[in-house]
């Protein structure tokens, strides 16, 4: 059987909210080392990967590997019935066709359980090589959210260029052009408010803003986001989920004809 217990439902609620519009369904692959997911959007332009490590759970048991096909919109409906502070337990028998979600309030005076019907989902897996990136930028996730939102009011695509001057986001559209540059900045006392630019070589890539905006739905998960860029490769936008693991969004760049 599979059983996983998290002390705060809020984490799972935020995770599902972050990915449900991008990927409508996907397989939760459970194994003794945790829960993972790899799902592409319908146009195969972006990919979401999720890794939740067994030791990040309050309790984790998985007797045999299972692939649980989940409709994220439906999972989201169920998770809306959980309080943020509820303890949440996920349970499934081996080869089950449903996933049980149990919510317990902090003082244990309210216990509810919901069964989610599982789906059979055929999904292609992509091999993502371990990569040394030309530029890795850590910045406040709220800053990332603001930049991609602001630029969306001007254009459809963004040129992201990392140089020793900083990371620059540029767009243009019918009403004009916009450039936003963030510099390496370790001045703020709080590490969460700092911007770290680790540059091996300058790199510039063009992306669709619509997807970068969608990734920002993960902002409530964590105060920092990491962007990894290499020429001719998808950008990786990574949000850490405390000690539990991380969610990564990969977006294919625009390519010249």
């Amino acid at each position: 059987m599979f059983e996983a217990r998290l002390p705060q439902a809020a984490v799972l609620k935020k995770l599902v909210e972050a990915l449900k519009e991008l990927v409508t369904e996907g397989n939760f692959d459970v194994s003794p080392s945790g829960i993972s997911l790899q799902a592409m959007d319908s146009s195969h332009v972006c990919l979401v990967t999720l890794q939740l490590n067994d030791d990040g759970f309050e309790h984790f048991r998985c007797d045999r590997n299972m692939s649980m096909g989940i409709h994220f919109g439906n999972l989201s409906k169920i998770l809306k019935c959980a309080g943020n502070e509820d303890t949440i337990t996920l349970k499934a028998e081996d080869n089950a066709d449903q996933l049980t979600l149990m919510f317990e309030s902090a003082n244990q005076d309210r216990i509810s359980d919901f069964d989610l019907k599982l789906m059979s989902i055929e999904s292609e897996h992509l091999g993502i090589p371990d990569q040394d990136y030309s530029a890795e930028v850590k910045m406040p996730s709220a800053e990332y959210q603001r930049i991609v939102r602001d630029l969306t009011s001007m254009g459809d695509t963004v040129l992201v260029s990392a140089t020793k001057e900083g990371i620059k986001f540029s767009t243009s559209g019918d009403i004009g052009t916009a450039n936003i540059t963030l510099r390496h900045n370790t001045t703020p006392e709080k590490e969460d408010e700092q911007t770290h630019i680790d540059l091996k070589e300058p790199v510039a890539l063009t992306f669709a803003l619509r997807y970068l905006n969608n990734f920002a739905k993960a902002t409530p998960l964590t105060p920092q986001v990491k962007l990894s860029l290499t020429k001719d490769l998808p950008v990786v936008v990574e949000y850490k989920v405390g000690e539990l693991g991380q969610v990564r969004f990969f977006l294919a760049p625009k390519i010249d004809d």
């Binding site: 592409m40 146009s43 195969h44 332009v45 972006c46 990919l47 292609e124 897996h125 992509l126 091999g127 993502i128 090589p129 695509t157 063009t206 669709a208 001719d232 490769l233 998808p234 990969f250 294919a252 760049p253 625009k254 390519i255 010249d256 004809d257």
Partner: peptide, 14 residues
């Protein structure tokens, strides 16, 4: 004008 790349252009399908 640049075209939107698909993930299969960059990663191997397993």
């Amino acid at each position: 004008k640049a075209n939107q790349g698909r993930l299969e252009n960059f990663f191997t399908v397993l």
